[in-house]
């Protein structure tokens, strides 16, 4: 308990580890119960219980945001950390040990993803600054060169889409380029809407990385 009356949770991390989360003062037993509940949901999710999985992920969002804030992630990037963390949790959910703290497990993943997001935003900010300077110093260009640049950008985008794995490429083509609804795309591709959404999310991340040179 800190001086301002809030409980400081360190989720069982080593003293040198960087993610400590402040949560509003609440009876300790309520916090413990909530954590035990999340641990039980995650254990059930490992066995394939979708409702438990939905609950534990929804319950995790506030914890991820708290970790990201403590790492210095700005409000505008919090959702990036939340979504990257949720995707990682999905990929590595088999590594959760039900006998251990769920919050410590999640906090470690969220802390790592927060650092990744901070780094990628730092790179983008630096690049954008360079771009502005370049634009200021560049003489006005005629319409032909603007057109040529647009064509080049479109070609780079087409190439980047072509390099995506088949499932992701399909999601971008159906949902993005042909502007089909989820239901139409699902009917057209024979995949369920959930898989299409996840594929689109991953594809957009990969394309951002490719076009901004983040890979």
């Amino acid at each position: 308990m800190t001086a301002d009356g809030s409980l400081v949770w360190d989720g069982g991390f080593a003293p040198s580890l960087d993610c400590r989360v402040s949560v509003p003062a609440e009876p300790a037993s309520a916090n413990e119960q909530a954590e035990r509940r999340r641990a039980a949901w995650m254990a059930a999710a490992q066995a394939g219980d979708r409702r438990a999985y939905e609950r534990v992920l929804a319950d995790s969002v506030a914890l991820i945001r708290a970790v990201a804030r403590r790492q210095g992630v700005g409000t505008d990037a919090l959702d990036d950390v939340v979504q990257e963390t949720l995707l990682t949790v999905h990929r590595v959910r088999h590594t959760y040990d039900a006998a251990r703290s769920y919050d410590a497990w999640l906090g470690a993943i969220a802390g790592r993803r927060a650092i990744d997001v901070l780094r990628s935003h730092g790179r983008r900010d630096r690049r954008e600054l360079h771009d502005e300077i370049a634009l200021d110093q560049h003489p006005d260009r005629d319409d032909a060169s603007v057109d040529a640049e647009r064509r080049q950008q479109a070609r780079r985008l087409r190439e980047a889409i072509a390099q995506l794995p088949p499932g992701q490429r399909e999601a971008v083509e159906q949902l993005g380029l042909r502007e089909q609804s989820l239901a139409e795309a699902a009917a057209h591709t024979g995949r369920n809407t959930g898989a299409l959404k996840v594929n689109l999310h991953r594809a957009l991340k990969a394309l951002r990385g490719h076009l901004h040179g983040e890979d």
Binding site: Y53, E54, Q83, L86, T193, G194, A195, K197
Partner: peptide, 13 residues
């Protein structure tokens, strides 16, 4: 986030 959670839950195995 809700739509991502729904999507991830839908593909849970």
């Amino acid at each position: 986030n809700d739509s991502l959670i729904a999507a991830l839950s839908a593909e849970l195995v």
